[in-house]
């Protein structure tokens, strides 16, 4: 399942800087929402809950990131998977497995596979979302509180969606829902945002739910318990040795 923009929302939210623009420039708005600033660092503790038609899972993870090219995520709970970690450096992804004390590099053929069993793929983690570059934007509608923005992929853009629709809260400039459609206009996935908090001068939704519409019993919900920006961390921190630390 394609979830490029989800990861960038997830990570981008960690990286948002203070916005200054007020005028309704759609591209700018989306860029804010999906913003990938380099040089921004963050630390977070999140809870990810995944439901599929066969099982349910709840994970608690620590994450440290630097820009969009470096992150290190480590599972804290449940105890069975404590210590499992993922390291991304630019386009490469590694996993650490404490039970066997080994590091595995994720090959390109597995990039379409899901990350930690969720509805997020390895691909999503690796590819930088260039939503503001790959799409053209138009305002579909407006209410007192919300904007509805239609994003159509540019003819040559390497995206699988037919179109994406953002529902954005005007006041705090945060997304409420994002709908993903295929080319026939069928809604394939919806992401919902909630629990907006102010962190480091910026409004950030702390709850994000991914819903694949053709499998209604399935979902992935990311809940940020802790989140802070501007954490002092260097590129050298994102190394295989650190990956192996328990």
């Amino acid at each position: 399942m394609q979830l490029r923009s989800l990861s960038t929302i997830a990570l981008g939210l960690i990286l948002l800087s203070a916005s200054s623009a007020f005028a309704l420039d759609l591209r700018e708005l989306i860029r804010e929402i999906e913003d990938q600033h380099t040089g921004r660092s963050s630390r977070a503790v999140m809870n990810m809950q995944v439901e599929t038609s066969h099982w349910e899972r709840s994970l608690v993870m620590n994450a440290v990131s630097l820009g969009r090219d470096h992150f290190l995520i480590r599972i804290q709970e449940p105890p069975k998977e404590k210590g499992v970690a993922t390291l991304k450096v630019e386009q490469e992804v590694w996993n650490y497995l404490p039970k066997v004390d080994r590091v595995i590099k994720v090959p390109p053929s597995m990039m379409g596979g899901s990350w930690m069993g969720s509805h997020i793929t390895n691909n999503d983690l690796v590819k930088a979302a260039k939503i503001d570059q790959d799409y053209d934007f138009a305002l579909l509608g407006e209410t007192d509180t919300t904007w509805r923005i239609n994003c159509t992929p540019k003819p040559e853009a390497a995206v699988v969606w037919g179109r994406i629709v953002y529902l954005v809260e005007k006041a705090r400039r945060v997304p409420l829902t994002v709908d993903y459609f295929d080319e026939d206009g069928i809604k394939v996935r919806t992401i919902t945002f909630d629990e907006v908090k102010e962190i480091d001068g910026r409004q950030v939704p702390m709850l994000m739910a991914v819903q694949p519409l053709e499998k209604p019993q399935e979902s992935t919900v990311m809940h940020y318990r802790e989140l802070e920006f501007g954490v002092p961390v260097e590129e050298s921190f994102f190394s295989l040795r650190n990956l192996r630390q328990r």
Partner: peptide, 13 residues
């Protein structure tokens, strides 16, 4: 070239 094909719903080698 071996690669990955992705649609809005599925991916395949």
């Amino acid at each position: 070239l071996p690669g990955l094909a992705q649609s809005s719903r599925e991916s395949r080698g």
